[in-house]
């Protein structure tokens, strides 16, 4: 299948597909970061993660509508406002869900799966009732349109670059928060030993709620970024949930570095193969590869050595 193309064409195909893969990678990273915190750190299987992402996307859609209606002059900057709103809305909803449901289930991880699946059904139907079943799209501000020519064969779209920067920035913030802040120490302490963490004076309930809220908030940011590359519907979130879980599990559940590395591997493999095979076969092969690796190495790529 390579023989039909000349070397320079092949190189630019790989570069372009690689870049398309980087856009996919950014969304994966943003979604998987939230899940890595919720699933990797807290052990909660949040099947509603995709719906938190879609909430962020809908908030972005609403904000863009508000800006285009009342503040058309500032339309170029609506995205930053929308992102903050998306983070806050998804985070608050996450904290509500944690308070209502998750906090009763910390000792039954498989049951969190069923309960959050219920939450996801309810959210989906809510979106359908409020925003309609049709997919909606957001019009991008002018400065994000177009593409940046790298060579005469390779062009990179600006929205892709933007989403990528966003993903990198968020990852750095999260890493700093988890590994360099006092709050991060508390989170990791609670995860490692809830009872002892409580005994040394950490308010474990509050830490749990904030952590879950943060994870959902990042999903909201992911949704915001998602509007830059695709349209959104009530069930869009469900399409990504399995991929996201595989990214987190493949990377090694408790490791942020692993999450980023596995998001990179999976997205690159998928988008490079997509060019040569059909999209569905690329996806099948990627998933099979991941499942195969997980059978050989169930703990994922990167693991933390922690005594439990």
């Amino acid at each position: 299948m390579f023989s039909d193309y000349s070397t320079s064409e092949l190189m630019s195909i790989f570069a372009m597909q690689g870049f398309a893969g980087l856009t996919l990678f950014s969304v994966f990273v943003l979604m998987a970061l939230g899940l890595a915190i919720i699933f990797g750190q807290m052990g909660v299987i949040n099947m509603a993660h995709g719906e938190f992402m879609i909430l962020g996307a809908y908030i972005t859609y609403l904000t863009s509508n508000i800006f285009s209606q009342w503040l058309p002059g500032l339309y170029g900057s609506y995205f930053f406002v929308a992102m903050i709103f998306a983070f806050i809305a998804a985070g608050l909803l996450g904290m509500l869900v944690e308070w209502l449901i998750i906090r009763h289930l910390y000792h039954r991880p498989l049951d969190t799966l069923l309960a959050t699946w219920g939450v996801s059904l309810i959210l989906q139907q809510t979106y359908r009732s409020v925003f309609g079943a049709r997919e909606v799209g957001v019009s991008m501000p002018d400065w994000m349109m177009g593409s940046y020519p790298l060579t005469d064969l390779v062009e990179v779209p600006i929205n892709g670059i933007f989403v990528m920067c966003l993903a990198i920035g968020t990852t750095c913030v999260i890493a700093a928060l988890m590994y360099r802040s006092r709050w991060g120490i508390q989170v990791r302490a609670v995860v490692q030993n809830r009872t002892m963490a409580g005994a040394v004076g950490i308010n474990t309930q509050k830490v749990d709620r904030m952590t879950f809220g943060l994870g959902c908030g990042i999903a909201g940011i992911a949704g915001s970024a998602f509007t830059m590359i695709g349209s959104i519907g009530p069930t869009s979130g469900q399409l990504y949930i399995v991929d996201t879980f595989l990214v987190v599990v493949f990377g090694g559940a408790a490791s942020l570095l692993g999450t980023v590395a596995s998001a990179f591997t999976i997205s690159q493999a998928q988008s490079t193969m997509e060019f040569f095979l059909s999209g569905s076969m690329a996806k099948v092969l990627t998933l099979l590869f991941v499942v195969g690796v997980l059978m050989i190495r169930p703990q994922g790529l990167f693991t933390l050595k922690v005594r439990r």
Partner: peptide
């Protein structure tokens, strides 16, 4: 879907 979602949550909790 609301009923189904509520059913999931109720059964678990």
């Amino acid at each position: 879907l609301f009923a189904m979602g509520a059913l999931f949550i109720a059964v678990v909790l």
